[in-house]
Every structure is written in C-alpha cells, then in structure tokens.
C-alpha cells in the first residue's frame, strides 16, 4: 500500500535560478538528447538533486537548420527559432539523491515527466526521510506542482509489499 506526504521537489516552474554541474555534457541534436554524466548535481533554491547521469529529452529545434527541416516535424508549435526546444522528459540514473527543505529521497532511478509534471523515483529500495521518520518503499511519485509525494510499497506479484515505516516517537507533533 502507499503512504502520502508532502515534499517540495525540483520545481522547474518557478523562476529560481538553477545550477547544473557534471563532469561531462553531450548534446546530440539529432537524437534530441542532452546527456550529463559524472557527479551530476542540480540545485534550485533549497532543492538539490545528485545522480550519476541525467539525460534530458527535448522536442523541437535546438538549432534551426537551414533547409534541412525534416518534413514531418512532429511539433511545429515548438517553433523554428533556435532555443525554442522544450523538454519532454528527464531521466536520472546511477544512485539518485533528492533533497528538499525537509526531506531526502534516494533511489536508483528517477524520471521527471514534464507533461504530467510527475517525478517518479524507483529502485530496489526507495527511502524517504523526513527528520527522524524513515519510510522505505519501491516507488515514490511526487507531483512537482504541489509537491504531494506518494510512496508505494514493493508490492506487485510477490507478497503484498508493505511500506516499511519507522516513526520516531514524539516526532509526529513536530
């Protein structure tokens, strides 16, 4: 079953500056991908994400090309001016660590789906920590707009997976 809590996550919609660092960045315009590898860190205000690799999938034209406009351009609305590329989805791998003001979440992989505005953190053990409270499950969904977070147990076919919860006494009425 799940448990729900509130978590401010990386919220690309407000205007706070964002700083991204990595050892390497490769931009493959044909595949519409920007791949950050090696000690990747993304900081926006109070929110920090760290991972081994981050791949950004975008649509539209990163660079307007003369005359080589592919006929069936999927998203004409993306506009032909360079830089009007929009991000479709971001995939993060290699030990993901997300920290917001009060909570830390860790897992193996994370996906930011820009259409649904949902961050999904998955892994053998997804750990959500708030103060002394530790919750372990297999899948954390965060609505990026509201920060509402929902941690699912490792259910599926085997035994009904339970969300393991460790609540420190006296911490509920923080």
């Amino acid at each position: 079953q799940q448990s729900q809590s509130r978590m401010t996550s990386l919220n690309l919609s407000n205007d706070q500056p964002i700083q991204i660092e990595s050892d390497k960045l490769e931009v493959r315009d044909n595949d519409r991908q920007a791949i950050f590898t090696g000690n990747v860190s993304v900081v926006q205000g109070e929110t920090l994400m760290k991972a081994g690799k981050m791949t950004v999938y975008y649509v539209g034209q990163a660079m307007a090309r003369d005359g080589q406009q592919k006929p069936a351009e999927t998203q004409p609305a993306a506009g032909a001016t360079p830089g009007s590329a929009d991000i479709e989805r971001i995939e993060v791998d290699g030990k993901v660590y997300v920290k917001s003001e009060s909570q830390v979440a860790t897992g193996d992989r994370a996906t930011f789906d820009m259409k649904s505005e949902v961050l999904t953190l998955t892994g053998k053990e997804v750990v959500l920590t708030e103060g002394e409270n530790v919750i372990v499950g297999c899948r954390l969904n965060v609505q990026m707009k509201t920060g509402q977070a929902q941690l699912d147990g490792c259910g599926g076919t085997q035994s009904g997976g339970r969300v393991k919860m460790l609540l420190q006494p006296g911490s509920q009425n923080r």
Binding site: S13, V27, D29, A34, Y58, A62, A85
Partner: peptide
Amino acid sequence: GRVRLLKIALPLAALAMAGAF
C-alpha cells in the same frame, strides 16, 4: 493543455545551441 511546465521548461537545448552556434 500544453502543461505550463512544458512551456517554460528548462531549455537546456537552448544552451547547447549557444555551443552549436
């Protein structure tokens, strides 16, 4: 509709464009 986030998404690619230019 077109999710607000998409419209003001992080145009990382725009930056790559600066390199490409």
